[in-house]
């Protein structure tokens, strides 16, 4: 079963300097019980993608085309506020990047965890019991007592564990993690990744995991999506992408420095050239200006070329990209 099925999603932001096309025809699938990674440089639209899924686009943002099917039925694009609120935090939960600021500083952790359960009809005691159970799962020591504490009384790593506990509280079928470890140091990062892997199995949810960190994606994810300038340029199993990348951008990204993967370099490698201006997108392929294979045909929009049942690249010349990394 597919938990999340995004089809040809386009999102625009109205800005003073004109319309910014943040996402263009983005398609991706998150199957049940799978961890799907999303990589891409900063500004390529990763957060916009999850905000669109959550119905939390900024006021100036608008979905201009496409569908977001959740659990096979509801199209989230057309769901109203009430319907969306019934899913958020309940069926679709999110862990954000910034553990320091993600929790309300003046409300106790216990209160915030109770509030998430406001639809459950449970008593206060039952809610607290569930919160304690979840905090224990994310390995917060002495959870009964810590429920009464406030976010500033926890370390950064602990706060991110609490954020994960909050996200999993209602046993969602989809967990979205937007760079959950970017703000943490390497040892904490490893611990959080292990924890996520573990809990995903226990709870049996799917995870959409956004990261800059190719090493982490390789280790954690079953499938992955490569984004560039608001488009999904390649998607497939993690194995396909790492061993047989077919989009020139993916190839550059992976070829840049294989040692990075081993070194757990927390940043994506930089490749020469600049990102296209999203207010003034090039006609045709977004990667043209940086692509060595670009030719005339590339000035028309490349098709999503299926390379196997699950491996797709948005490029005209996938026949030329087979084989060793460029």
């Amino acid at each position: 079963m597919t938990v999340l099925d995004v089809k040809d999603l386009s999102v625009d932001f109205a800005t003073e300097a004109g319309t910014l096309q943040a996402l263009r025809k983005v398609s991706l699938k998150v199957p049940a019980n799978r961890i799907v990674g999303v990589v891409g440089e900063s500004g390529c639209g990763k957060s916009t993608l999850i905000n669109a899924v959550l119905g939390l686009l900024a006021d100036n943002g608008r979905v201009t085309a496409g569908q977001i099917l959740f659990e096979g039925k509801s199209d989230l694009v057309h769901l109203d506020g009430t319907g969306m609120r019934a899913l958020r935090g309940q069926r679709i939960a999110t862990v954000f990047q910034d553990p320091m600021g993600a929790l309300n500083p003046v409300l106790s952790v216990g209160k915030q965890m109770r509030d998430i359960q406001y639809r459950s009809g449970r008593s206060r005691k039952e809610k607290d019991a569930l919160s304690v159970e979840m905090l224990r799962k994310v390995r917060i020591p002495d959870p009964e007592h810590r429920l009464a504490q406030f976010p500033h009384e926890f370390s950064g790593g602990m706060k991110q564990r609490i954020a994960i506990a909050m996200a999993l509280l209602m046993r969602p079928s989809l967990l979205i993690a937007d760079e959950p470890t970017t703000a943490l140091d390497a040892t904490l990062e490893v611990a959080i990744i292990e924890l996520l892997k573990d809990l995903q199995k226990q709870i049996g949810c799917s995870v959409l995991f956004i990261s800059h960190h190719l090493g982490v994606i390789a280790e954690l994810c079953d499938e992955m999506i490569v984004m560039y300038a608001g488009e999904v340029v390649e998607r497939g199993s993690t194995r396909d992408i790492f061993h047989n990348p077919r989009h020139p951008y993916t190839k550059k990204l992976l070829a840049c420095d294989p040692a990075r993967l081993a070194r757990r370099e927390p940043r994506l490698p930089t490749i020469p050239g600049t990102l296209p201006d999203l207010r003034n997108r090039p006609k045709g392929c977004v990667f043209q200006s940086r692509c060595e294979l670009a030719d005339d045909v590339c000035s028309t929009m490349p098709p999503d070329t299926a390379l196997s049942t699950s491996h797709v690249a948005r490029c005209w010349h996938t026949d030329e990209t087979a084989g060793a990394a460029a």
């Binding site: 958020r88 935090g89 999110t94 600021g101 929790l103 639809r119 909050m166």
Partner: peptide
């Protein structure tokens, strides 16, 4: 944290 609260459907 307000974004978090929204993301939790409050």
């Amino acid at each position: 944290h307000i974004r978090t609260a929204r993301a939790f459907g409050l």
